[in-house]
Simulated scan of single mutants.
Amino acid sequence: MPLHRLLRLSPTAVLGLWHRTETAAALGALLPAGAPYSALLPPTAGPERQGQWLAGRVLAHTVAAALWPGAPALWVRNDAATGRPYLGGPGVPTGAVVSLSHSGAWAAALLATGGRVGIDVELVRDKARRIATKFLSAPELAAAQVVGTDAHFTLLWSAKETLYKLAERRGLIFKEQLLLDSFVPAPAGEIPMELRLADSQSRHRICYSQPAAGYVLTYCWEPGGPIDIL
């Protein structure tokens, strides 16, 4: 089974990475019997998309079993209003949260008992660089162009995606409300960021690494909530 890694961030939070090599049918067979995923699988998805979707759910169950031994009969659903995933089913721990992501052959999941979570994995492509003016502010764009690589622009996009998931609000404007502070790029590290909402401003630290050649991973778990800016 291509479970790549389980990373315990704390006694109450676990991150998982899955390198997908299985077919959609093989992944479906790994899901718990009776879980309602056949009805939840996107009906218009092709084989590749189905495989990504199922890998995320298989990984979520794997992480849940590591985080909560004797894991409850849970399943992953998506909120109709926001689209974000949540855990349902009998015996799900109070305050349990989940964030999922997939790109190319990789799936990522972050589960925790309480707090807020966000995770994103991205295949490095030139797309983030081509659309940079849509998600980077003018100062952010100027700083990014100094580095200039597709990998760097993909990392910045991924960091904003993770903060967007953490914020749990639709309609945020990436270049105005999800803001990057300066940092020195490295193979792994943290990116300080600021979230600007209509009623508050807060600071966050987005962790990043390279799970494999040609991919970037960003994530954040906040057990105690954000640091508000006075």
Rank of each mutant, 00 (worst) to 15 (best):
G34Q: 07
W157Q: 03
L31D: 12
L141T: 10
A151F: 04
A60P: 12
A105V: 10
N78I: 01
Q52D: 11
L67F: 05
P139S: 05
D126H: 07
E122K: 08
A144Q: 13
T113V: 11
G118K: 02
G104D: 09
G70F: 07
V147S: 13
T44V: 11
L141F: 10
V121G: 07
E122S: 09
G89D: 10
A73T: 14
A71N: 11
A142N: 03
P36C: 11
V58A: 13
G46Q: 12
S137D: 12
A138Y: 01
A25L: 12
A33G: 10
A60W: 07
A73N: 12
S101W: 13
I131M: 13
T44M: 08
G148S: 07
L41Y: 11
A138L: 13
P69W: 06
G104H: 08
G89Y: 11
D79S: 02
L87P: 09
W75L: 05
A142I: 06
Q50C: 14
D126G: 08
G95R: 04
A107R: 00
A128T: 14
T21V: 02
Y86G: 00
G88L: 03
V92L: 06
P85C: 02
P72S: 11
A45R: 14
L141W: 04
Q145K: 11
A105I: 02
L54V: 14
L123D: 00
V63W: 04
P42M: 06
R129T: 12
L141P: 04
A107H: 00
I131Q: 12
A26Y: 02
R84T: 00
A107K: 00
L100Q: 06
L40T: 05
F135Y: 14
F153H: 01
A26H: 05
P42C: 03
A80Q: 02
L31T: 13
L123W: 01
L67Y: 02
R125K: 07
L156Y: 06
T82A: 11
A66N: 09
R49A: 00
G114W: 05
P32R: 08
H61S: 12
Y37I: 00
P85Q: 08
L155M: 08
L110Q: 04
G91H: 09
S103H: 04
S103Y: 03
S38F: 01
V63G: 04
L41W: 09
Q52V: 00
A26E: 14
V97A: 04
Y37W: 12
P47N: 05
G104A: 04
A142W: 02
F153Y: 14
R125C: 05
W75P: 04
P139E: 12
R84P: 00
V146A: 15
L123A: 10
L27M: 06
A29F: 00
T94A: 15
A81D: 04
V147E: 15
A71R: 14
A25G: 08
G95E: 03
R130A: 15
E140R: 12
V97M: 06
G46P: 07
L41H: 13
T133W: 08
A151P: 10
L155H: 02
G56H: 09
G56Q: 03
R49W: 01
V117G: 07
R57T: 08
H102Q: 13
H152P: 06
D120F: 10
L54G: 15
K134A: 15
Q50V: 07
D150C: 05
A64I: 06
R77E: 08
H152R: 11
I119Q: 10
A81F: 05
P85W: 06
A138S: 09
T21C: 01
